[in-house]
Design a protein around this nucleic acid. Structure first.
Lengths: 205, 205
DNA sequence: GCACCTGTTTGAACGCCGTTCAACATAAAA
DNA sequence: TTTTATGTTGAACGGCGTTCAAACAGGTGC
């Protein structure tokens, strides 16, 4: 078999093994030696395929971002909301979809925000674009909700609304055990996103 | 000198050294050997004073939470807001104070949310109380804003509002370089918190 | 002074980590 | 077959948190 094909296959197997490991035991459980043993190659081979473990983690997180994006997109109750009411409902539904994804894929979702590159390295372009795509999903319903807003302002606001939802989900999921149930969390999230959307429509003081 | 006194002094010196290290170079730069060298003791001595490095980190983060709490508290433009308008302004001011603290103490602030205990260990009570105190600062103005709400509901909502602000600050600070300036971030935060507060007062649909 | 005991302090050593690279295997060319 | 180029390997390196047998210091009785 050609070495190129071997490498491509191994690359795929490594990614799958890494995804499963992260999903099952969290980002901290991802170890080079363990991955090598799982896919049946040497430790060194990993570094022939990925420059370092960070690259493998980014590949895993990239796939998570894709799944997350698909989830949030498919949540839009109306594929193209036309009224402010529909747009509001779509935003609240997106927030709930984000929460449900975080709850159902906790380790994978946490890995996205847990992982930190060394300060001198920076996230690759394809990864940044994936995140941007996620933000833009939020900005779309905002267009119906706030039609007079400039495009770049709406993009910024989309990021902020996403951040808002992320904050509630993030701190909520992190101390799930002992304090609040998933149902209570979903309720709180709906209260907050609902209020935020109403407030954005209301005239500013 | 009595060993007890020596230990107490060393405990203090270790905490200060750890704080400075985290503030200057971030949580990841905190190493046992380095701390020992800085305060002039052996590595082992650290483990006679703190059970492990997690405990030292929690001590550092505890002090950060205290400073943060003081900052947010002192931000209340009116020490005891009496009108809904004052309460709204107080909440927006608190959010801005939170942002300013995060910007001015980035590494220390990041350390709070970056640090993760092993899943089998859990945060000590005094640490949880510090966080609870922070949330309660938000809940206080909510009392004027939503006087009819039950106490425990208000506490929950306080946590959610805090989470909201935290989300915007968190994702905002993490990609500060290249995209948005601190001023833009502050503006975005004000837009979001303002809208949220307005929405909470408006009748729910 | 010395010997004894008791609690404290020490830093080499352990196990685990990401990463490297001289040595080895394999395939292609001569 | 021999030589060359290319791909693969896993022991070894440096660094990490943590431990614990051994060295140490302080007090007590002689």
């Amino acid at each position: 078999m050609k070495p190129d094909k071997r490498r491509a296959e191994l690359r795929q197997r490594l990614l799958e093994a890494a995804e499963q490991k992260v999903a099952a035991e969290g980002l901290d459980a991802l170890k080079a030696r363990d991955m090598a043993a799982t896919v049946g190659c040497s430790v060194g081979q990993i570094y022939n395929i990925y420059p370092d473990l960070d690259a493998l983690i980014l590949a895993v997180n990239g796939r998570t971002l894709e799944k997350l994006g698909a989830m949030v997109t498919s949540s839009k109750q109306t594929t193209a909301p036309s009224s402010p009411e529909e747009a509001s409902a779509a935003l609240v539904a997106q927030a709930d979809a984000y929460l449900q994804f975080a709850l159902n894929n906790r380790n994978r979702w946490q890995a996205i925000f847990q992982h930190r590159l060394a300060t001198d390295k920076q996230q690759p372009d394809w990864y940044l674009e994936l995140k941007e795509k996620l933000f833009s999903h939020v900005a779309a319903p905002l267009q119906i909700l706030l039609p007079d807003m400039a495009v770049e302002d709406r993009a910024r606001l989309g990021r902020s609304v996403f951040s808002t939802v992320h904050g509630v989900v993030s701190l909520g999921v992190e101390e799930l055990l002992g304090r609040q149930s998933p149902a209570e969390l979903a309720e709180q999230l709906e209260v907050v996103t609902g209020a935020l959307v109403r407030g954005l429509q209301a005239p500013s003081s």
